[in-house]
Design a protein around this nucleic acid. Structure first.
Lengths: 342, 342
DNA sequence: TTGAAGTGTCGAAGCGCTTAAACAGATGCC
DNA sequence: GGCATCTGTTTAAGCGCTTCGACACTTCAA
């Protein structure tokens, strides 16, 4: 194992000089810096992480706490995890993966052991038990999602209200007047800091402003439940020409059901989905969709936590950022002008 | 911050005694142990990770290197990552997430800095650059997937050959004689340690033994490519009554195309998928599927690496395990007896 | 009774790094 | 010329833990 002392000997300087060259915390002459750097390279030196963490009291690790439960669309979580990891590396941090089932004790363990300098929490509940622990330990953290009380924390989330509004605007612009909003199962609307609820609210408000008539129907996302939901919608509002689909699981079934029911997309009805572009591209016809970037979410979360960490280590009090990412509407083949009245 | 010295003082013993109580590496009297334990609890002591890693030369961290690229079915990756994390915790390890794009240098960095005690590598290529680095650094590692040359490593994978064989057997048992195997795009067969290839080989061999006629056709997984593939299959072999679908992306399109083409599943044709149960349940009809457990994969990988780490720390030479997990066939609604000849 | 072996605890060294403080030498100012 | 100042480097004191060897005391066999 190559230590800092080996590098120092090889470069003919003291080990503190090597440390200062590497950290840049003191002025070192060009000549010395060059020699040290080349010794580092030649010997293949990598500072020992444990020793560094012990001496500097910073581990350069960010813990990412991910949900175990998989009713959230999983690929998104993975994408976030990966973008957190890549973004963290760019700031000199590594990422430790923790599962949600460790709960508040997990947060305590990570914070008290100094394993991580800060945490990123996903899937935060409205009144999450982990947040008081964070505050008690004085641990820096960022939430992905919005919490009830985020004092002393930063958070970032998609602007679901704006996403809902985008759907309403797009359909209104195309001349649709009767819209069905196919949602999640009813339980979902009260979890996850209500992201489902916020989307719906955004849609509802804008729909109201634009003079749309609309129906909101819950749906479990299986074939059977989608069939049931669709049947009820068409019974209640036979004139429906636009569908907003919030539940990814319902997309496939809905398209199949419309087709077998003799309705062509987008000539007879328009369908707009709230889902990732990748998923939207997989259907036939390809779906017009409103989506937020999961990558961006991870990147912003990392920037927030790194910022907090920097502020705290300089003795400041980090400010509690609250970022809302603007979603984008991508028009594809599943939406078109409302059909002329028969 | 609570240190071991605080605990020692509180319990009226020396700090080495506390350390021995916690590690169990020396005999400590029942009475002392009790006192120390209760002090630990009362003070909320968690050993400092950095100090521990430095002194013991073990970080109790396992690095998991995940692929960035997302042509692999992503939910599986997430499931593996999560099961690795949970399994690792049960052995007293935490998991560091590294992305594949760090490449061999990443491996070097992690190993040389002592950040992790061992690595789990996913998505290993047949002739992977990271493997020589692992050997050079003397780092313990486990591969998920099979590599060309795995000396000094353990590995675990699904038994894809068996999975292919299960498909052939099931369709043969039901009396089908002409089968189409809908595969991935042609590029995939030469990557990923050839898992796609192995499945196909397993199917082909068993199909031969059972006297099945079969066609293998590549497919990109989009709606269009599936339509093209299906058309060719039906043109070449109009008597085809069984489909084995390897490419998850092709499942939805295939079902839709069969339906619109007037073929009923499972009365006219049977469809068997090589995919996760969760996905198989989402279609209508629910699909008969052959699948391996991603959870198991993660768990076994952790057991292998933990075993290697234990053996190495006791001065032994760990043996190179090579585990193949047996897949299971779950019969659902998409397969049935071959139709009687017209 | 004595020495050997076993049991439970402690003291202290050291893991590899960071960083405050000291220091040496060059430079500038009055 | 003497003093302050600045620049670049070294010295040394930890960071909080593990672990080796020492030690005190008990138990047991000869």
């Amino acid at each position: 194992m190559v230590t800092i002392a080996d590098v120092a000997r090889h470069a003919g300087v003291s080990s503190s000089t090597v440390s200062y060259v590497l950290s840049g915390k003191r002025a070192i002459s060009e000549e010395t810096r060059r020699r040290v750097r080349s010794s580092v390279r030649e010997l293949g030196y990598h500072p020992n992480a444990g020793a560094r963490a012990l001496a500097a009291r910073r581990s350069h690790i960010i813990a990412l706490m991910v949900p175990l439960r998989t009713d959230v669309y999983v690929p998104v979580m993975m994408e976030i995890a990966i973008s957190v990891t890549t973004a963290a590396r760019q700031h000199g941090y590594d990422v430790l993966l923790i599962t949600n089932d460790e709960g508040p004790d997990g947060v305590r363990r990570i914070a008290a052991s100094g394993l991580a300098d800060g945490l990123i929490l996903m899937d935060v509940e409205l009144d999450d038990e982990r947040i008081p622990v964070l505050r008690a330990q004085g641990t820096q953290a960022t939430l992905i999602g919005l919490a009830d009380d985020a004092r002393g924390l930063s958070c970032v989330d998609h602007d679901f209200v704006a996403a809902g509004a985008l759907c309403a605007d797009h359909l209104a612009d195309l001349g649709h007047r009767e819209i069905a909003f196919i949602g999640y199962g009813s339980g979902v609307y009260h979890r996850h800091a209500g992201y489902a609820e916020r989307t719906l609210a955004g849609f509802r408000d804008r729909a109201g402003q634009r003079g749309l008539r609309f129906l909101h129907r819950t749906c479990e996302g299986t074939y059977e439940s989608t069939a049931g939901t669709l049947a009820r919608v068409l019974a209640d509002r036979p004139g429906t020409t636009g569908f907003v689909v919030q539940n990814e699981g319902a997309i496939g079934p809905l398209l199949t059901l419309l087709r077998t029911g003799g309705r062509t997309v987008p000539e007879d009805v328009s369908v707009i989905a709230l889902c990732q572009d990748q998923l939207a591209e997989q259907f036939a016809p390809r779906l017009t969709a409103v989506t937020g970037s999961a990558q961006e979410l991870g990147r912003v979360a990392v920037e927030q936590i790194v910022g907090r960490l920097a502020a705290a280590s300089e003795g400041g009090r980090p400010d509690d950022d609250r970022a809302l990412l603007t979603p984008t509407l991508t028009v594809r083949e599943s939406t078109g002008p409302a059909p002329l009245l028969p």
